[in-house]
Simulated assay, not measured.
Amino acid sequence: MVENPSLEELGAILKKAKRIAVVGLSNNPERTSYQIAKAMQEAGYEIIPVNPTIDEVLGVKAVKSLKEINGHVDIVDIFRRSEHLPDLAREFIEIDADVFWAQQGIVNEEAYHFLKEHGRTVVMDLCIKVIHALTR
């Protein structure tokens, strides 16, 4: 069973965070990932697009994988299908990011338990933009 941090804890995470790597970020303005990343960028977060199929989005050069990111990542925000989460969880541990955040509708218990065993903060099935609006 996946258990998310409390709303208060999520608010603290978002207040502390500066850099968000967005896995599966689309360069199509119609897509939810684009709209949410744009809103978070406008709220003052540095957005790092992680998508091997695009060159850039929101004025930022995209990287092919989490491992290509230079510097520390506070939140890895994921817009990929649930079956991709275990591989992303392993990559997340390799880059030593702080918070693994799977967007609304995305849950994978294997990835959740793997990350918890590594002492990581995990959020699943919640929209980062909605939580940001609720905790400002």
Rank of each mutant, 00 (worst) to 15 (best):
S65V: 02
K116R: 14
A12D: 15
E94G: 03
D77M: 05
G24V: 06
I106R: 05
F79C: 08
M1Q: 08
L88H: 01
P86G: 04
M40L: 15
F100Y: 07
L115D: 00
R81P: 07
S65K: 13
G59V: 08
K129G: 14
V22K: 08
V23A: 03
V76R: 01
N27M: 12
I78H: 02
R81V: 14
K61N: 13
K64H: 08
L58T: 07
G44H: 04
A111L: 05
I48W: 04
N70S: 14
E3W: 00
A89F: 05
D77G: 04
R120K: 15
E109M: 00
I106V: 14
T121P: 05
G119S: 09
I131N: 05
K16M: 10
E30C: 01
R80Y: 07
E109N: 00
D96W: 02
A21G: 09
I128P: 07
E46G: 02
L66D: 01
L14T: 09
G59N: 05
D96L: 02
M40W: 10
P5I: 03
N4V: 01
L126F: 10
A43V: 07
I13E: 06
H132R: 13
G11Y: 08
D98Y: 09
A62Y: 05
E9I: 08
A89E: 04
L134K: 14
V130W: 12
P86N: 08
R80N: 06
N108F: 00
N70F: 07
N27E: 14
R120Y: 02
G105V: 04
I78R: 04
V22I: 11
K16Q: 15
I95M: 12
N70G: 12
S26E: 11
K38E: 15
D125E: 03
A12H: 15
K61F: 09
I54W: 06
G59E: 10
D77K: 08
N51A: 08
V63A: 10
A12L: 13
L25D: 03
S65W: 03
V63Y: 11
E83K: 11
H84V: 06
K61D: 13
V123K: 01
D98P: 06
D98T: 09
K15E: 15
R31V: 08
L88M: 12
A17W: 05
L88A: 04
P49S: 11
Q41H: 07
H113G: 01
K61Q: 14
I36C: 03
E8W: 10
G59S: 13
E83G: 00
V99I: 10
